[in-house]
Amino acid sequence: MAIPMPLAPPAPAPLPVSHDVTIVTTRKLAQARVMGVPPEEFGIERGARSIPDCNYCFHEVVTRTAAQLIAEGFDQEQIQSLNDYTGTTEIETLARDTVDEHFVFNSGGLNSAARLVRITEHYVRMDYEGNGRPSLYQVITGGEQCEILRKGGKECITPFDMMPFAATTPVPVTHRFFGRSIADLVMPLQREKTALKRGALDNLYLSNNPRVEVAESNAGPSTLDDLLVSRPGGVVRTKTPGGLNWQVVPDITTSIYPMLQYLDAELEMRTGLAKQTQGIDADALQNQSATAVAQVFSASQMRIKLIARIMAEGVRDIFSLLHGTIRKHGQQLQTVRLRNTWINIDPRGWKTRDDMTINVALGSGGKRGFENVARIIRR
Rank of each mutant, 00 (worst) to 15 (best):
residue 85 Y to F: 13
residue 290 A to Y: 01
residue 223 T to K: 07
residue 28 K to Q: 06
residue 334 Q to Y: 06
residue 226 D to Y: 01
residue 126 M to R: 06
residue 81 S to A: 15
residue 247 Q to Y: 08
residue 309 R to C: 09
residue 76 Q to V: 08
residue 217 S to A: 15
residue 91 I to T: 15
residue 358 I to C: 11
residue 176 R to K: 15
residue 169 T to Q: 13
residue 94 L to I: 14
residue 141 T to N: 01
residue 203 N to P: 03
residue 378 R to Q: 10
residue 366 G to L: 08
residue 282 A to Q: 05
residue 357 T to I: 09
residue 203 N to K: 04
residue 85 Y to N: 05
residue 232 P to V: 06
residue 299 A to F: 08
residue 37 V to E: 06
residue 313 E to L: 12
residue 285 L to P: 00
residue 286 Q to N: 14
residue 252 I to F: 00
residue 65 T to W: 10
residue 316 R to P: 01
residue 284 A to G: 02
residue 186 V to H: 00
residue 136 L to M: 04
residue 315 V to S: 10
residue 277 T to V: 15
residue 335 T to I: 07
residue 59 H to E: 13
residue 78 Q to G: 07
residue 106 N to V: 03
residue 277 T to F: 00
residue 88 T to P: 00
residue 10 P to C: 07
residue 321 L to R: 10
residue 217 S to T: 12
residue 197 K to F: 01
residue 333 L to N: 04
residue 312 A to E: 15
residue 239 K to R: 13
residue 32 A to I: 12
residue 105 F to E: 14
residue 71 A to W: 00
residue 249 V to Q: 09
residue 357 T to S: 08
residue 68 Q to Y: 09
residue 61 V to E: 13
residue 153 G to E: 02
residue 42 F to Q: 06
residue 311 M to A: 13
residue 165 F to W: 00
residue 346 D to M: 03
residue 85 Y to K: 01
residue 186 V to K: 03
residue 44 I to L: 03
residue 368 R to L: 15
residue 1 M to F: 03
residue 164 P to E: 03
residue 43 G to V: 03
residue 239 K to E: 10
residue 241 P to D: 08
residue 53 D to M: 06
residue 292 A to K: 07
residue 299 A to G: 12
residue 185 L to D: 07
residue 222 S to V: 04
residue 174 T to P: 12
residue 334 Q to T: 08
residue 315 V to P: 02
residue 281 D to M: 01
residue 177 F to C: 04
residue 63 T to N: 15
residue 127 D to N: 11
residue 57 C to Y: 00
residue 269 M to K: 14
residue 243 G to R: 04
residue 216 E to R: 04
residue 183 A to H: 09
residue 154 K to L: 01
residue 195 A to G: 03
residue 102 H to G: 02
residue 284 A to T: 10
residue 63 T to G: 11
residue 34 V to F: 05
residue 190 Q to L: 01
residue 183 A to Y: 05
residue 182 I to K: 01
residue 78 Q to P: 10
residue 288 Q to E: 14
residue 153 G to D: 03
residue 95 A to Q: 14
residue 194 T to H: 11
residue 59 H to R: 13
residue 373 V to R: 07
residue 328 K to N: 12
residue 277 T to Y: 05
residue 65 T to K: 10
residue 56 Y to D: 09
residue 308 A to R: 13
residue 231 R to F: 04
